[in-house]
Computed example of a mutant assay.
Amino acid sequence: MNETQNHDISKSFREKNSSKFLDPCQKESLNSMECLDRNNYDKGKCKDLFILYRECKKKWLEKRRELRRKG
Rank of each mutant, 00 (worst) to 15 (best):
S10P: 03
K58C: 15
Q5S: 13
R38T: 13
M1C: 10
N6S: 15
K59Q: 14
N17A: 07
S32I: 12
K45A: 07
K11F: 02
L67R: 09
N39S: 01
L49N: 01
M1P: 06
R65S: 15
E28I: 02
R38C: 09
E66M: 00
C35E: 01
N6C: 15
E55M: 13
F50R: 12
M33H: 03
R69I: 02
N39T: 05
Q5E: 15
R69V: 05
H7A: 13
K27M: 03
E15D: 01
Q5P: 03
Q5V: 12
S29F: 10
K70S: 14
R69H: 04
G71H: 08
E3G: 11
L30F: 11
K20T: 11
F50Q: 13
R14T: 05
C46A: 05
K11Y: 02
C25I: 11
W60T: 15
Q26M: 10
L22A: 08
K27H: 10
K11D: 04
D42M: 02
L61H: 06
L22M: 11
K63T: 10
L30I: 15
F21S: 11
S18V: 07
L22W: 08
H7W: 11
D23G: 06
R38K: 11
S10G: 14
E62V: 00
F13S: 08
E3W: 10
C35R: 00
M1V: 10
K45Y: 01
D37C: 09
D8G: 09
S12L: 00
E34G: 07
R69P: 02
Y53M: 13
D23W: 10
D48E: 10
L30G: 08
R38V: 09
R14M: 05
N17E: 12
S18M: 07
C46N: 01
K59D: 14
E28L: 05
K59I: 09
K43C: 02
N31V: 07
F13W: 09
E62T: 00
M33Y: 04
E15I: 01
E55Q: 14
I9R: 00
